[in-house]
């Protein structure tokens, strides 16, 4: 039995905190940080383990700051 697991890497220094990715994620994986980056934006961060690597966030991010990974993980 296998299922897909995903992960995302957010270039937080380039994130402008628009939150469009938050709205696009079907599993509420992304939320906004309380901290701000060098430009003063609350950047996107990953807040749970539910990512399936669907690429929605990366696709919709206007600044292209999200890289998405996806792999089939075999479970016993």
């Amino acid at each position: 039995m296998g299922k897909f697991q995903g992960d995302i890497v957010i270039n937080t220094e380039r994130c402008k905190g628009c939150e469009v990715c938050v709205a696009a994620c079907p599993f509420s994986v992304i939320a906004m940080s309380k901290d701000v980056n060098g430009k003063g934006y609350h950047f996107a961060i990953k807040v749970n383990d539910e990512c399936t690597g669907c690429t929605n966030c990366g696709t919709v991010c206007p600044d292209g700051v999200i890289t998405v990974y996806r792999a089939k993980v075999t479970t016993e």
Binding site: T59, Y69, R70
Partner: peptide, 21 residues
């Protein structure tokens, strides 16, 4: 800053499915 919920076993170059061109 420490990153929570990172999955090093997934986060490998061969698993990239979306990346800025």
């Amino acid at each position: 800053m420490e990153e929570l919920f990172a999955k090093p076993e997934i986060r490998k170059p061969e698993n990239i499915v979306y990346k800025k061109t």
